[in-house]
Amino acid sequence: MLLIFHAIQWLSLNLGGYTPHKKAVDILNWFLTSSYYLLGNTVTFINHQHLPTNRSIIFIANHQSMYDIPPLIYFLRKHHAKFISKIELATGIPSISYNLKHGGAANIDRNDPKQSIGEILKLAKNMKEKNWSTVIFPEGTRSKTGVMKPFAVGGIATILKKVPHALIVPIVINNSWKMVRYGSFPLNTFIAMRWEVLKPIEPEGLSAEEIVKKAEAAIREKVML
């Protein structure tokens, strides 16, 4: 699937530009999300919030596995949500690396603070100019047991300096860590995985630290262990 869509992405981007490429990425992530069902796992994505499409959004989520990401891309597709990713993922993985390189993600080198800030600022500029959104995992790394790690403020604070009116939307992810309980292989079966979009936080009058604290508290309250 990744090999096929790597070619489709290349053709879409080079023949049509951003919009066809994004549609190809959305369809790829529908297929990736649907593949979870092959193992008897289920995906429930709950969004009862009326989120604007004419305003940039910073989606803040806990992070349990790489399988968190395809449902986020697909179900949030109308918001043009881009990811902050470690630079190592931008090479060597069919489809995934191509999208990270050419789809608008911020690919950061954790050993190079200057490069990392530059990438995040470039993403913030695109958010401001193109009305894009972003998905941030403030824990920094995946939780292998579902227990949340403390949220870092850095990346969110940097984006808010450039896009101060971006809406903050927490998302809680539950049980995706169980799919990789035994590592990448074998993947676990019959897991009820769940994504839920929580009540938005207006940033006006709040510091970045206060915003992240509110988002972290809202997500912690909904995490199931």
Rank of each mutant, 00 (worst) to 15 (best):
L3C: 09
H6L: 11
I8W: 08
S12G: 12
L13D: 02
L13V: 03
N14G: 07
A24Y: 02
V25W: 10
V25E: 05
L28F: 15
L28V: 08
Y36I: 02
G40T: 05
G40K: 07
N41E: 03
T42S: 15
V43Q: 09
I46T: 11
Q49V: 09
Q49T: 08
L51M: 13
N54Y: 11
R55Q: 15
I58R: 04
A61V: 07
S65C: 10
S65K: 04
M66W: 08
P71C: 09
K78N: 14
A90P: 04
G92I: 10
S97Q: 04
L100K: 08
G104Y: 02
G104M: 05
A106G: 05
I117P: 04
I117Y: 01
E119P: 00
K122W: 03
L123A: 05
A124K: 08
K125V: 07
K130P: 10
W132G: 02
P138G: 12
P138I: 01
R142E: 06
G146F: 02
F151W: 01
I156K: 03
A157Q: 09
P164I: 02
A166L: 02
A166N: 01
L167D: 03
I168K: 03
P170N: 06
I171D: 01
V172T: 05
N175R: 06
N175D: 13
W177E: 13
M179H: 06
V180W: 06
V180K: 11
R181N: 11
G183L: 13
S184F: 12
I191A: 05
A192N: 15
R194W: 03
E196I: 12
I201F: 01
I201G: 07
P203Q: 05
G205C: 09
S207K: 08
A208Y: 11
E209N: 15
V212G: 10
V223M: 14
V223L: 14
L225C: 03
